[in-house]
Design a protein around this nucleic acid. Structure first.
Length: 639
RNA sequence: GCCGAUGUAGCUCAGCCGGUAGAGCAACUGAUUCGUAAUCAGUAGGUCAGCGGUUCAAAUCCGCUCAUCGGCUCCA
C-alpha cells in the first residue's frame, strides 16, 4: 500500500495509507471534534468526510460555524427537502437546490401548486428523514451513465444539466440519502441525523435557469442553522426587519403614502417626508456646487424625435410613457441626459471649458413592470441626483476618480458601507467595440487608481456604455444599488457634440452619466430601514418636540417654539391636554430626537428640559440657547 | 410581465358549514391639569377592494378586474 503525507492545519505532518478517508485520517487526531464537522477541505477543495485521500495533501475539517460549513449543512437540508417532496407528491421533478446566503431553496416542476399547509407536511416528512439518520453517499458515474440513469427516472431537468456540462467533464457525482438520488457536486454532511434546526419559509415562482422564456418552476425557500437557538434568533431578526419596513414606517411616521386611487408606483410625500427629502436635496446641491458642478433643469417631456436620436426610443421604449401635444408626439423622460446634451450644444466649446458637469435633481418616469414595484424602493416616478460630465478623453480618469471619491464621502455621511461592481457590455447595445473597450478600461483603471476592490458583472452594462455600480449595505446587511457611474461614447456621437481642441480642430467629448444617491426615493427608503426611522438629528424632519406638563405652560411653550423656529430648529408642539408620560411615549414612537419638557420649573427659569430619544436620558434644564447649541453641534458638518 | 398568496373601520386583526358586521389601538367630545413610554368616560366610524354570477339569502361559494405582499425576470 502506498504511503502519503498529510499536512494538518497546525503545519504538522503525518504519514497515512493512500485511500484512507478524511475521517479515518483525522479521527485519532481530532477526536470528538470530528463529530461536529460537516465536511473537509483537502488541498483547498471542499469534500465529504468520507472522501478517500489518494495523494500527499493538506487536510482540515470544516465546521458548521464557518460560512462554508453552514452552506454544506443547508445544501444537505435542501436534498432532504427534495426527498420529502418526492415522497409526498407524485409527479414532481427535481431541478436545482443550492444553499444561498440566508438558507437554501429547491426548484421543482409540479403540475399542482404547493400551499403553506404543504410546507408543514413536507417539514414533518423531513423530520422523519432526519431521525432515520440516512448517510449521504457519494456515487460517481460517467456522464453518459448518469444521463441514462436520470432519463430512466424521468428527471428531464437533471438530464439537461448533464448534457450542458462542458465537454471536458467525463464523470459526474450523485448523492443518495435513503432511497433518494440527486445529481450533485457535493460535498454533503455525513448523515441526515446531523440536522437539528431548519424551517421552510415560503413558496415562490422561479424561471428554470433564471430565464423568463423558460418554464416557471415552484421554488421552496427554507433555512437551517447549527442550533435551534440560532434559527430562533434568525426568525426574530426577520421580524425586526419587518418592523423596519419603510412602507410601514412611512405610514407610522407620516412620511408618505401610496394610494390606489393615484396609481401603482406613485408616491405622495406628506409634510415630514417632503422635509426629509428637502434636507437630502439641499445637502446634494451644496455638495455638488462644492465640486464644480453646474445645477441645471430640463423639461419633463421632450419630442419623440429627440428620443429617437438618442437611441432611447429604440432601446428603452418599453419603459417609457408617451403623450401627444398639439398633434406632436412627446416622450416623458425616463432619463435626464437629453436636456444636458442640448445645454452643451448651445455654444461652441473650447477644450479649456472642459470638463462641464451638469447636475439635475431630475424627476423621471419609467414604466416598471407591476410585479417589481416596492414602496419607495421601486417606483414609477422618481428623482435622480443625476449628472452628466462632458470631458476630454484625457480627463476621464480624474473625473471618474473624483466621482468615486464623492460616492465614498456621501456613503460616509449617511453611515453606509458599500461594495463596488463593474458591469460590461450587454447584448443589444449601441456603439463600437473599440469605444466599449476604451470606456471599460477607463472605469477599471480609475477604480484601481483609487485602490477600490470590485467584482465584475459580465454583460450587465447600460445599453450605451459600461458602468460602475456601488451597492450600499444597510444596518441589517442588505445590499442596495444606489450610486452608479456610466461611461458613454455613444450619446456625444449621436448628438454630434464637439469641442475645439488646442489644435483648432473639432474633437468629440466623452460623457459620464452618474448618480450618487441614485434615486432620492429609493435612498430615503434605504435610510428609513437603515435607521429604523430613528434618523440622526441632522436628517430628522422633526428634531424636537415641545411637551407641556399642563395647560398653564403653553405661553412659555409658544415662546420656546418661536425661538427654535427662528434658530432653524425643526420643531413641533405637543400642548395637548395629556399626561407627560403619554406625550413622551408618543414622541418616542415618532422617533423625535429631543423632547423638550416644559413645566412650571422651566417657566420660572425660562429654560427647557430636553430628553434624548436614544437612551431616554433626561439632560436636565438648560437655556433655550444652550439647547440650540446642542442641536447645532449634532448637525455640524452635515448641513 | 410570470408564479403563488392576500384584500373586512385610519392601523392590527376576528367573523365556523352562506342568514344583511365585531374587538383592540388610533380619531372625536367631555371630565381631569397631571414631571420623563399609555388618565377616565362617552361618541362616531364599514358599498366587507371593484364588477359580474350562483342562491330565497353572499364578507363567506364561483368568475373576471384592480391593488398589495413574497419570489422570478428587470432595475435607480
Amino acid at each position: 500500500m502506498e504511503k502519503i503525507t498529510i499536512t494538518l492545519p497546525d503545519g504538522s505532518t503525518e504519514v497515512h495509507q493512500a485511500g484512507e478517508s478524511v475521517r479515518e485520517i483525522l479521527s485519532s487526531r481530532c477526536g470528538d471534534a470530528i463529530a461536529s464537522a460537516v465536511a473537509a477541505r483537502v488541498n483547498g477543495q471542499m469534500v465529504d468526510l468520507s472522501r478517500p485521500v489518494l495523494e500527499d495533501s493538506s487536510v482540515e475539517l470544516v465546521y458548521i460555524s464557518s460560512t462554508e460549513g453552514l452552506g454544506v449543512l443547508r445544501h444537505s437540508i435542501s436534498h432532504i427537502m427534495a426527498q420529502a417532496v418526492q415522497d409526498i407528491f407524485k409527479g414532481v421533478k427535481v431541478t436545482i437546490g443550492p444553499s444561498i446566503e440566508e438558507g437554501f431553496y429547491y426548484d421543482f416542476e409540479y403540475a399542482n401548486t404547493f400551499t403553506p399547509e404543504d410546507l408543514e407536511k413536507i417539514e414533518a416528512r423531513m423530520r422523519e428523514i432526519v431521525s432515520a439518520d440516512h448517510p449521504f453517499v457519494r456515487l460517481e458515474m460517467s456522464r453518459k451513465e448518469a444521463a441514462a440513469f436520470f432519463e430512466k427516472k424521468g428527471e428531464s431537468y437533471k438530464v439537461e444539466l448533464i448534457n450542458d456540462l462542458p465537454d471536458d467533464v467525463t464523470d459526474v457525482s450523485l448523492y443518495t440519502q435513503g432511497d433518494f438520488v440527486d445529481l450533485c457536486r457535493g460535498p454533503h454532511i455525513p448523515s441526515t441525523g446531523m440536522i437539528t434546526a431548519f424551517k421552510l419559509l415560503n413558496v415562490a415562482g422561479a424561471y428554470w435557469r433564471g430565464n423568463e422564456k423558460n418554464r416557471m418552476l415552484q421554488r421552496i425557500y427554507g433555512t437551517g442553522f447549527a442550533t435551534q437557538e440560532e434559527l430562533a434568533s434568525y426568525l426574530t431578526l426577520m421580524e425586526e426587519a419587518k418592523k423596519r419596513d419603510h412602507r410601514r414606517l412611512g405610514r407610522e411616521l407620516d412620511l408618505f403614502q401610496l394610494n390606489d386611487e393615484v396609481g401603482p408606483g406613485l408616491i405622495i410625500f406628506h409634510p415630514k417626508g417632503t422635509l426629509l427629502r428637502t434636507i437630502i436635496e439641499d445637502w446634494e446641491r451644496k455638495e455638488h456646487l462644492k465640486r464644480g458642478y453646474d445645477i441645471v433643469m430640463g423639461p419633463q417631456i421632450l419630442k419623440v424625435d429627440l428620443w429617437k436620436k438618442s437611441g432611447h426610443f429604440e432601446h428603452y421604449r418599453e419603459n417609457m410613457y408617451f403623450t401627444e401635444v398639439d398633434d406632436q408626439a412627446y416622450g416623458i423622460k425616463p432619463m435626464n441626459c437629453l436636456s444636458h446634451m442640448l445645454i452643451y450644444k448651445s455654444k461652441i466649446r473650447s477644450y479649456r471649458d472642459l470638463p462641464l458637469r451638469y447636475f439635475e435633481l431630475g424627476t423621471v418616469h419609467r414604466h416598471e413592470k407591476t410585479g417589481v414595484l416596492h414602496g419607495l424602493m421601486r417606483a414609477r416616478q422618481f428623482t435622480q441626483d443625476d449628472a452628466h460630465i462632458l470631458c476630454r478623453p484625457d480627463q476621464l480618469n480624474t473625473e471618474i476618480r473624483a466621482i468615486a471619491d464623492f460616492v465614498d464621502y456621501a456613503m460616509g455621511v449617511f453611515g453606509f458601507s458599500y461594495e463596488v461592481e463593474l458591469s460590461t457590455r450587454p447584448n443589444g447595445s449601441i456603439g463600437s467595440d473599440a469605444d466599449w473597450d476604451l470606456a471599460t478600461e477607463a472605469l477599471k483603471l480609475a477604480l484601481e487608481d483609487n485602490a477600490m476592490t470590485y467584482d465584475i458583472n459580465e454583460g450587465d452594462g447600460a445599453f450605451y456604455g459600461p458602468k460602475i455600480d456601488f451597492k450600499l449595505k444597510d444596518a441589517l446587511g442588505r445590499k442596495w444599488q444606489c450610486a452608479t457611474i456610466q461611461c458613454d461614447f455613444a450619446l456625444p456621437e449621436r448628438f454630434d457634440l464637439s469641442y475645439i481642441g488646442a489644435d483648432g480642430e473639432k474633437h468629440r467629448p466623452v460623457m459620464l452619466h452618474r448618480v450618487i444617491l441614485g434615486a432620492i426615493e429609493r435612498f430615503m427608503g434605504v435610510l428609513i430601514e437603515h435607521y429604523a426611522g430613528a434618523f440622526p438629528v441632522w436628517l430628522s424632519p422633526v428634531q424636537t418636540s415641545i411637551l407641556t406638563v399642563t395647560d398653564s405652560q403653553i405661553p412659555h411653550g409658544e415662546k420656546v417654539y418661536s425661538r427654535l423656529l427662528e434658530a432653524g430648529v425643526r420643531c413641533e408642539r405637543d400642548f395637548r391636554n395629556e399626561k407627560l408620560g403619554y406625550k413622551i411615549r408618543e414622541g418616542q414612537m415618532q422617533k423625535v430626537p429631543y423632547m423638550l419638557v416644559v413645566g412650571d420649573r422651566e417657566v420660572e427659569s425660562g429654560t427647557v428640559s430636553p430628553r434624548e430619544r436614544d437612551g431616554g436620558k433626561n439632560l436636565g434644564s438648560m437655556s433655550i440657547d444652550d439647547f440650540i447649541a446642542v442641536v447645532r453641534e449634532k448637525c455640524d458638518g452635515f448641513e
